[in-house]
Amino acid sequence: MSTVSQRRRVAVAVARKDLTIEWNSRILVNQVAPFAAIVMVLFAFALDNDGILQRVAPGLVWLATLFSMLVVIQRTFAVESADGALDALRVAGVDPSAIFAGKSLALMVQLFALELLLVGTAVVLYGVNMTLVGFAEALVTLLAATVGLACVGTLYGGLAGGARGRETLLPLLLLPVVAPVLIGATRATEAAFGSGGTKVSEGWPWIVLLLVFAVIFAAVGSVAFGPLVDE
């Protein structure tokens, strides 16, 4: 059995490897981020009407996040299957919970960068105004939602990664499961943005929901990722 320090070492190695692959290939920067920005611009074209954008901006930010996340997850497991690397890790007896932790960590970093871009785009394109406290709440919301999305995304990415038709299977499996994150993150972001007259204090219970979701899927993923990729 691997010790905690061995697991930590492997998780860090996997996360560093995934981020190095992104650094080498620039897929997030050159393809996913522009895609996310284009989605936000298209929302602006479709809903450009008497302040609607300011009211629905939080939901649009999180919808764009989910769509972009699907692309990032597909990519992170495509690099594993291109030359049988995930199989090689499994064959080598590398602790699956450490692989899960490392891949989730790398996904968190990429998603957080993407979400910052989307919030920035909402501020610029949709005319969103935030107080300092609202900005702090938005940051906490991003962090809490990112942990949950990364854990559930890694779990379902691993599940769909070995399946036939994985490109279409992943959205079908993943989007219903992340509905609680979409709801919680949207409500918390509404409070942070002050959309529709909501107060900043109304966002904190939703952030607690996001944290609960994150803890549940971190725990489930650590246990279930190994058997799922073994199948």
Binding site: R9, V10, V12, A13, R16, K17, T20, I21, N24, S25, V79, A82, D83, G84, A85, D87, A88, L89, V91, A92, G93, V94
Partner: peptide, 30 residues
């Protein structure tokens, strides 16, 4: 047993966007 033997099948288990050194360094880190 898996941690002490190495199986090389029809694929090589490499990350195509990593350099040779980065690939080997990754396995070394594990």
């Amino acid at each position: 047993i898996r941690t002490r033997v190495g199986l090389l099948g029809h694929t090589n288990g490499l990350y195509l966007d990593l350099s040779v050194e980065q690939n080997i360094q990754f396995w070394a880190s594990t």
